[in-house]
């Protein structure tokens, strides 16, 4: 057990980073479940990284399992929570590409499927886009290039405090005082303004 949970229990503090830093330290010190306590927090972004790369649900699950298991060996070199998110996102993306390439021969030859917004699959009828605003957003996202669709989907799930570090790692330019909009978000914003 570790004491990191009590950090989260105190309301009204910007304690997320502190709690994750505490759990990272506990994991390095050999606490077996400390990493497990970080898993629920950062798995959603990794899920969308893997799915945005075009993987099936089953392959995406396998990739997440693999990435979390391999984190154990790399934890010593990761210095802070933002670096942890970056490492997880980049490693998941790389592993997803590897899995995708391995299965490529069984898939259609055109590259369109790789990075387009995935068909939500069964149950998508339930995704009722209720208001015009959401419909407009969906339509605008679909007009982006495949690469921008992938990037926008990934960055939308990055925890806010880690945004700048991860965006930089993904090749999106950042300014001296904070994250800049980047080409894909600028394009999406322009599409929405029309």
């Amino acid at each position: 057990m570790n004491e990191c949970g009590s950090i989260a229990a105190r309301p009204g503090r910007p304690d997320r980073g502190e709690r994750i830093a505490c759990l990272m330290k506990a994991a390095r010190d050999g606490d077996d479940d400390a990493l497990g306590q970080i898993v629920p927090e950062l798995s959603p972004v990794l899920w969308h990284v893997a799915r945005a790369a075009g993987l099936s649900s089953g392959d995406a699950e396998d990739v997440l399992q693999t990435v979390w298991a391999s984190l154990v060996a790399h934890l010593g070199g990761i210095r802070d929570p933002a670096a942890l998110t970056s490492w997880l996102v980049v490693t998941t993306r790389r592993e997803a590409w590897r899995v995708r390439e391995a299965g490529r021969r069984q898939l259609p030859a055109d590259d369109e499927w790789l990075t387009t917004v995935p068909d939500p699959g069964p149950g998508s009828e339930d995704l009722v886009i209720r208001d015009e605003q959401r419909q407009a957003l969906w339509a605008a996202v679909r007009q982006l290039s495949p690469r921008c669709q992938e990037l926008i989907r990934i960055v939308a799930f990055i925890p806010r405090p880690d945004y700048q570090a991860v965006a930089a790692e993904l090749g999106m330019p950042t300014g001296s005082i904070g994250p800049t909009r980047g080409r894909c978000l600028a394009k999406l914003r322009a599409l929405l303004a029309n």
């Binding site: 969308h48 998508s124 995704l127 957003l137 926008i152 989907r153 909009r181 978000l185 914003r189």
Partner: peptide, 25 residues
């Protein structure tokens, strides 16, 4: 526009994108 700092509207757009994909997949 791509080199300007992010503002509230940008974060709102990203919140919307997160909702879309979080609901769809």
């Amino acid at each position: 526009a791509s080199h300007e700092p992010m503002d509230d509207l940008d974060w709102e757009i990203l919140d919307g994108v997160r909702e879309l994909f979080g609901g769809a997949d």
